[in-house]
Nucleic acid binder design. Structure first.
Lengths: 236, 236
DNA sequence: CAGTGGTCTAGACCACGCC
DNA sequence: GCGTGGTCTAGACCACTGG
């Protein structure tokens, strides 16, 4: 695993592991920059770089003249958890899906703009009922470019994560995700699926996911069960 | 303004201004690291540091072997916009408030834990109906430590931002905000205030705001008008 | 190939917290 | 005063992109 990873990342992983193992408890100090230099026989800039990474992740914070400390709150769950599958796994429940629609379709105007599609470019539309431990949690519609991600069409996404497939098949590294959230009364067939009733209160999340080069990848609408599901985000 | 700011921050501001002025358009390149070195007569590490800052802010992104480019989406609105007042101002509407409750109170268990309060420590509880251009948008309840922020009790928060007061009076620099979001059917007096009816669909946001040293500052529950209000966040 | 970003070195001086 | 983090230098070699 350490194969050819840059040294600063090795150091960062070392600290991360120390935190996970409880060696560096919440609120307590991690080794100082000079100590890390000695431990890894490196220069201070490199040790600093490792800490920088963990600070921007929110795992550590620095206090000038005193030291670097482990954050009190666990941000780890929030970062890098794109997609329903990973969110559910982080919560310790088993995610699954029921495919409702899986087709090549014409994008609407919003979708063209969001995904920066060319003229006449089609999309793969995947609509799924999302379950957590077999309980309906959300109705999700994801749209990706058919031209770019043709290989994924027809794949079985009953239990697989779409984001995993995008990473594994196309080497996409996740960047930002822009989310617009509001409350919504869901009616019709979707409400029956999600609530077992003709209407219910849902959390509507519309998100556009970008890769690390800011290229839009996916455009999705999710309606989460209002009382069962809570979004947890960190804003900096 | 440039007084004794570190050089890397001066360079970052220079680039930021260039973006704002349209000199570096969305998707276009900013000066390369070596160019910045020459422009500011500095070493590469310093120029890099400036770019680092803008990259973690989401304003720029790097492509190895090619250059550094201006992001396509505007993240500026999302970062550093703590509180309703600033959010509304960013949207170009005029925020105001009607004070519903303003008192020194006993915290409940969740609040004690969230704000890491000592035994018998009291809180200032401020509940407001939040208006945008005189339209009801949210019912918000903020709790802060009475012991720490006594000076603010009795202050007029009809149009003032609580977060501005905390910064100006106590020099607090904002850090993270942790938010838990779900959908909720609001009933009772609050529903009448917000919807003019006995019940309505609301976006429930419970957030804990931390300063830059990870000390909890405020604990708030907000119920936003479900159809009028949309939360807009970026997740990395 | 030249130019870009990615990583790294071995020092330096300063501002700050704590004892 | 000593150790901490905050900033900075003037180089270096590598990996990658582009023409």
């Amino acid at each position: 695993m350490t194969d050819d990873a840059p040294l600063f990342r090795v150091i960062a992983s070392f600290i991360r592991r120390g935190i996970q193992d409880g060696e560096y408890p919440s609120g307590g100090p991690v080794p100082s920059e000079t100590e890390l230099c000695a431990m890894f026989d490196t220069s201070r800039m490199t040790a600093r770089r490792a800490i920088d990474e963990l600070v921007t992740e929110g795992l550590l914070y620095r206090v000038q003249g005193s030291g670097t400390y482990v954050s009190h709150i666990e941000l780890k769950k929030i970062y890098r958890t794109h997609g329903f599958t990973h969110n559910m796994q982080a919560l310790g429940v088993t995610p699954s899906s029921r495919i409702l629609v899986f087709e090549v379709a014409e994008p609407d105007g919003d979708c063209v703009q969001a995904l920066q599609l060319g003229a006449d470019e089609k999309i793969i539309l995947l609509k799924r009922l999302r379950l957590a431990d077999l309980e309906p949690m959300a109705v999700e519609t994801v749209r990706i470019s058919y031209q770019k991600f043709q290989k994924l069409y027809g794949r079985d996404f009953t239990s697989a994560s779409l984001y995993d497939a995008l990473r594994d098949e196309y080497g996409l590294e996740a960047g930002y995700s822009r989310q617009r959230i509001n409350a919504h009364t869901l009616t019709g067939a979707d409400a029956v699926l999600l609530f077992g009733r003709k209407s219910g209160v849902a959390l509507h999340v519309r998100n556009i996911d970008y890769d690390k080069n800011q290229i839009p990848i996916a455009y999705a609408d999710s309606y989460y069960h209002g009382t069962k599901y809570t979004l947890d985000v960190i804003i900096k």
